[in-house]
């Protein structure tokens, strides 16, 4: 059916193949790896590693809807909003999930008193998002061209 064809295709993605592939813990963000208590951006795996009660939890950039940063007194608040069903204004192709009846993590809010480090984390997240969006557009163009040629 025509209608079905318009449905978003779940393009499978994976941050890491196994937990052994997670970067090693390091003390500082600027080294390669992550800190157990800090948000870290792994450019290579296109993922944001979030500290959640002792675990290093990756979220692939494809799941991120947007991020925002705000100053509140001596703190920086970083909010990560993730793509879920039921979001107003989200395009169909913006739905990279294979199960709409699952439970979704929709948002995480962190606070930190390290203003400059959080600014860097935020910038890295936005860069990652921009690059991922660009790549996805390139892919769509390639697919559209291929389809045109097939027709």
């Amino acid at each position: 059916k025509e209608k079905d064809e318009k449905k978003a295709v779940f393009r499978k993605f994976e941050s890491y193949k196994s937990d052994a592939k997670l970067p090693k813990e390091v003390k500082n963000l600027r080294n390669v790896g992550f800190s157990s208590r800090q948000i870290t951006v792994d450019q290579k795996a296109e993922s944001i590693i979030c500290p959640i009660y002792g675990l290093a939890v990756p979220f692939h950039i494809s799941t991120l809807k947007n991020a925002s940063k705000s100053d509140e007194g001596e703190f920086v608040i970083l909010r990560l909003n993730f793509l879920t069903p039921g979001q107003a204004g989200s395009k169909k192709e913006d739905m990279p999930f294979d199960d709409i009846n699952a439970t979704f993590v929709r948002a995480l809010t962190y606070r930190s008193s390290d203003v400059s480090r959080m600014a860097e984390v935020y910038k890295n997240i936005m860069d990652l998002k921009k690059n991922a969006a660009k790549r996805s557009t390139d892919l769509s163009i390639v697919e559209a061209e291929r389809k045109e040629m097939a027709d």
Binding site: R37, Q38, G86, R106, L108, D114
Partner: peptide, 20 residues
């Protein structure tokens, strides 16, 4: 922050979306 520490990013809240 209890014992204010620049090395710690604290999880303030988490929001779940539960269809159904």
């Amino acid at each position: 922050v209890v014992g204010s520490n620049k090395d710690v990013d604290e999880l303030v809240d988490i929001t779940f979306y539960i269809p159904g």
